[in-house]
Structures are given as C-alpha cells and as structure tokens.
Write a protein that binds this DNA or RNA. Structure first.
Length: 584
RNA sequence: GCGCCCGUAGCUCAAUCGGAUAGAGCAUCGGCCUUCUAAGCCGAGGGUUGCAGGUUCGAACCCUGCCGGGCGCGCCA
C-alpha cells in the first residue's frame, strides 16, 4: 500500500513536469511516503511538496495543491488533504483498510513476507565466540540480535545463511588442550599444579573427567616428568604457559596431544551448540578456522593479496598495505616466526565467503571489535571486492547488574554469568525479547535481579499474553458451543467502525512494512517495538469491547479481526525467536 | 593523546532518510474484575532531547567546539 501511494505520487510529478508545472530539467526526487504518526493525519503522509518547493521555486502549499490535482484516481484512496506546512495526507477507504485482515488470514504464517530481498544471498556471521569455554551472557545479545536479524532478512525475501566462525586454531587451542590435560592428570591422582593463566573454569574439570572415563590412564604422565626444568611461573606467566604447552606436547606425542585437543574442542563446542540450540539459535554451519588453515585457504588469500600488489616484507614479517585502503596503519599477515596472524585467517575467511558466492556479508560483532573493521574492509577492497558488500553490525555490550551492582563477565576471572544461567534465571523468551528490543548500537543495562523479580512486567509477556488471550477467546467460544461461522472474505468487516478497531486494522496493515523496514535498516528491534504496540492495541480493544456477543454478524467480524491479530503476533514473535503460547 | 559508539522523563528505552503536539514501560498518585485470562485496562503528574553555537521552511537526528560514559589503538586471538 505504501508503494501504491508512492507510485501515485511519482505519476503525478511526472505529469506535472510534462505539463510544464515543474521545470523540465528538474530531477524528480525519490518520493518519500511514511505512515502518518497521528491518526488525524490520515493513513499515509508525503512531504514531497516541501522537498520540491525550493528547486521548483514555488510555495509548498501551492505545489501540494497542484500535486493533488494531478494524482491519478485510486480505488484505495478515499481522500487527500493538505496540512501543516505542505504535507499531503492520504486517507484510505475503509475497504482498503480492511483488506489487511483478509490478507493476513489468507497468508497465515506467510503474512509479512515480501520479496524486497529478491533472493539476494546474504551470509550472516554472529556470536563466533572462542571455543575455550561456555557462552557467557555477553554473547547473548549478539546471538539474539543476529538470529532475529537473519529471520527478518529471510522474511523480507533474502536467501540467508547463518554461520558461526569457530576459532579453533592458534595458541588458545594449545592452552585449552594443556588445561584439560592437567585436569585429567588431577583426575588420575597426579599432584600437578594448575597455572594461573590456564583456563580455570569448572567445565574444564568436568570434561577432563570425561576424557579420563573414555580413555582411562592412557595419557597419564607423572607430575615430576611434567615439571622438570620448567621456568618459574611467577617471573613470566605467559612464558611458563608456553613452556607447559610444549612439554605437554612432547610428553604426549603428537597423536595423543591431538586426541586431547580435539576432545577438549569437541566437548566445549558441544556445550556452545547446546546452549545456542536451547536459546533457539540454529546455524547452517559451524565454520572451522583450522580447516581454513589445513585446506591452504590462508596461503590462497595471501597469494591473492600479493598478486594484487598490496603486500611487502619488513622486519622479517609479511605486511598488508591496509593504510592504502583507509586503515590507520599497515597490518602483519605473517609474523617473523613464520606463523600467520589471526588477521590473515580472517582475510581468508572473508575471501572464502565471497568465493562461496554470497552477495552480502553481514558480520555481527561485539563493539570491542570496532577497531578491527577498517582492516577487514581494506583487505576486501584490495582483493577487488566492493566494500559495500561487507556490512558489520556492531553490537554494544549489555552491562550486567545484579542487585544494582555492576557485574564483570570476563572468562578469565572465573566469575561470570553464563548464557545458560541467564536462561535458567529469566527464561529464553524474556532474555531474547529483552536483548532485541533495543537498537543494537545503544548501550544497554541488564539487571538480572530486576529481570527475574519483575519477570511478569517484562514486555515479552505483554505480547505473549495478548496472544494467549486471543486463543482463550476461541476456547471460550467453543465451550459455549459457538464458532466463527464465516470465512475472512465473507466477514462483515465494514461493521468494524469503532476507533479501537480502526487502530488495530491500521496496525495489521503495517506489519509487512515493518518487516521490510527492519530488514533494510538491519534493525530487528523495530519488530519488537511494533509487537508491543500491536499487543497494546489489542489489550485496549479487549477491555473496551466484548467479542462473544449475540449479534452474529458483528461477532464474526470481531472474531475475524482478532484472529488476524493473533496471526500477526505469532508471526512477529516467531521472527524474534519467542514462543507464542496458547495459554498463560 | 588519537579513533569509533553513546548521552532523550526519577530509572530502562522508542521516536519510520530532517517532518506535524518528542512517545512507551517501570516507579508515583487516582480509578476498573457480577460477561471472553487483572501477566490486563482507563486517567494524572513528570522534558531547555548533556551544554554552546551553526546549517534550513523545519533539528533529538546534520556540522563545529566543549562536558560526561563505554570501547579500541599488539608481529595476541
């Protein structure tokens, strides 16, 4: 409908130019049509006359008058008014307004879907937390945002691929393997001392015991063998850790070491997958960084950069000329010790996404990675890829509070709240809705005690309650031996002339526009805001007007309206990964 | 020090590309269960959109400078 109005305006402008009412050389602007914020302003509003006033050298209101006279007739438009400084306000006919109810019920779960995405292939990468421990609550926002955005894009007609990038290569994996092995030795009764910089969490102990149960004493070495000749930990904790890793590797041999490492990785990745699963987040693929290394994709990427002529050697290292493409400085790809950097792997990963045929790459990153964005963009540009194709959405951290006290969430400190604990405390639905309710750029406060103690006031329940209430109405109807006896097309929707009904009709018609807007702006919070509005309109309606009444035609019309509302609530909540319960 | 993000009601946040009288929830106060779920509804109070300039028909939004908060500035990942 919005597009219909815009097209009417565009035709009017064209006609005016041909009639000489606008300068022939005037470039016609893209017509902006928006939903009227105030119902007194009709259904749709356009600022076209005000935008054109200056270049056309005419008064906005006069221009608006001319535009109105040139508008083609439309069955959907009941009237056009000129208001304020020169707004054109369009009012829909009642028939056009009722149409949304019929469309919503006819399309059911499909209502709201569109084809603006035109099958564009979008790769969306989110969470991608290091597989060195369970997900903590800091990852929750990225998970909720990324998944909701992916769903919204799907609904808007994009072809979406969800991916988790697993950083299963490099030093952190060695530290993980060593940490798990030391706990394994403890489980076997060896008196080893655990390094401060190792992964301290209980989950390591748990998984180490599992390894002990699975493999028995096969990987046991004595504490004496392990400690012999190692430097003192206090002097150089990081150096000590590296020495410990090297010693572990040496004592276990490559095969057993690999076994321990893979066991640790699989166990932790299993935890992560299970947590995301329970959070309602499902990926098409978990993409392994190690595989990128093993398959020579990093060398491939470095060659490509080299061929493009943007690498050079200095101080024994291989550098990328990121500064040529807008980054602050050049970046190292291969260190003087011969190992490639994390950045090199990331270049390879992004190149791989492009080579897999994706049109657009959406990266959902924590805001602490913002300094990293220019160098990845620079690499893509150097590889001849249009930087517009990479869209990095930075998600600000949610600052956690418990009882008014700010909470740290570092995995190193050992005192962090896991995503699982969050789910256990406040529930999946409340957590997901809360995370996705706000703009991702907005810093956010999240008080766990508040979310728990006031869980009944959480906006998610407000929306779910509206859905459950509607289901209850139909149960009630059945109990009284009644039913809605008409199809949506037969319903006497013209009887719905009350103010509350007009508001609901208006909102139902807006839903597809909201999805489209949320997809284009990459802002799933628009959907959450909309659902709250829709739920509010329904609750008001529910309290003001009885549905199960004696007047059968009116009763059926109201039931049809309410059924359409239920459908839209269910569709919208579904996009956000929130359940729409039949009862509460 | 440099760079990025943010600053809106007591609190947490919205505000459709710059658009009409800046809106919700929580909290406070006053009402509504003898009919479909009170996890709800109706009403009231609460604002110099951090501050000061600028741009224009029009600024919470764009520009400049300050103030405050978060984050980042590694041959770590």
């Amino acid at each position: 409908m919005k597009r219909h109005v815009a097209s009417l305006l565009a035709q009017a402008l064209k006609a005016m130019r041909e009639a000489g009412e606008l300068p022939a050389d005037l470039e016609l602007p893209e017509v902006q049509v928006e939903r009227a914020r105030d119902r007194a302003h009709g259904d749709y509003a356009a600022n076209t006359a005000m935008v054109l006033a200056k270049p056309a050298r005419q008064k906005p209101r006069d221009l608006a008058e001319t535009i109105r006279s040139r508008l083609p007739a439309s069955e959907a438009i009941a009237g056009v008014e000129i208001a304020g400084p020169g707004f054109l306000n369009f009012t829909l006919t009642t028939a056009a307004r009722q149409e949304s109810v019929r469309v919503a019920l006819r399309q059911g779960a499909e209502y709201g879907r569109s084809d603006v995405g035109a099958g564009h292939r979008v790769h969306i990468e989110f969470v991608s937390a290091n597989p060195t421990g369970p997900l903590h609550v800091g990852h929750g926002r990225g998970a909720a945002f990324g998944d909701a955005l992916a769903s919204v894009l799907e609904a808007a007609g994009y072809h979406v691929h969800r991916e988790y990038y697993v950083n299963d290569a490099g030093r952190q994996m060695d530290i993980l393997a060593a940490s798990l092995w030391l706990r394994y030795l403890e489980a076997a009764g060896e008196p080893v001392s655990f390094p401060n910089k190792g992964y301290q969490g209980d989950y390591i102990v748990t998984h180490a015991r599992e390894l002990f149960e699975a493999d028995g004493r096969e990987h046991v070495r004595t504490a004496a063998e392990l400690g012999a000749g190692l430097p003192a930990e206090d002097d150089d904790p990081e150096g000590y850790l590296d020495a410990l890793v090297a010693r572990s590797r040496e004592l276990l041999g490559e095969t057993a070491y690999r076994r321990v490492l893979d066991f640790a990785l699989e166990a932790i990745l299993g935890d992560i997958r299970a947590d995301l699963d329970a959070f309602g987040v499902h990926y098409h693929r978990y993409f392994s960084e190690r595989q990128l290394v093993d398959q020579g994709r990093i060398e491939h990427a470095l060659e490509r950069l080299d061929q493009a002529g943007y690498t050079y050697r200095a101080d024994g290292a291989l550098w990328f000329q990121a500064s040529v493409f807008g980054d602050d400085k050049d970046r190292v790809l291969r260190r003087d010790n011969g190992l490639t950097t994390y950045f090199a792997a990331d270049v390879a990963y992004h190149l791989d996404k492009i080579e897999r045929g994706f049109d657009t790459l959406v990266n959902v990153w924590g805001a602490d990675h913002h300094g990293y964005v220019p160098r990845v963009q620079a690499a893509l540009k150097a590889l001849g890829v249009d930087a517009e194709r990479l869209d990095v959405r930075l998600v600000q951290f949610a600052i956690l509070y418990r009882g008014g006290e700010k909470l740290p969430m570092s995995t190193r400190s050992g005192e962090f709240v896991t995503l699982r604990e969050l789910r256990d405390e406040v529930g999946k639905d409340a957590a997901r809705f809360f995370y996705v309710m706000r703009r991702s750029e907005q810093h956010m406060d999240f008080d766990l005690d508040l979310a728990k103690s006031e869980s009944a006031d959480n906006p998610v329940y407000y929306c779910q309650y509206a859905h459950a209430r509607i289901c209850s109405v139909f149960r009630q109807l059945e109990e009284r031996g009644l039913a809605c006896r008409v199809t949506p097309d037969e319903a006497a929707l013209e009887r719905l002339d009350a103010e509350h009904e007009a508001i609901l009709l208006d909102l139902l018609g807006r839903y597809p526009e909201v999805i489209e807007s949320a997809a284009l702006a990459r802002e799933p919070h628009q959907v959450a805001q909309y659902l709250r509005e829709l739920a509010a309109a329904f609750h008001t309606y529910y309290n003001a007007v009885p549905f199960i009444i004696d007047d059968e035609a009116l009763r059926d019309a109201r039931l049809t309206l309410v059924q359409a509302t239920r459908q839209v609530l269910a569709n919208g909540l579904g996009l956000l990964g929130v359940d729409a319960p039949q009862s509460m």
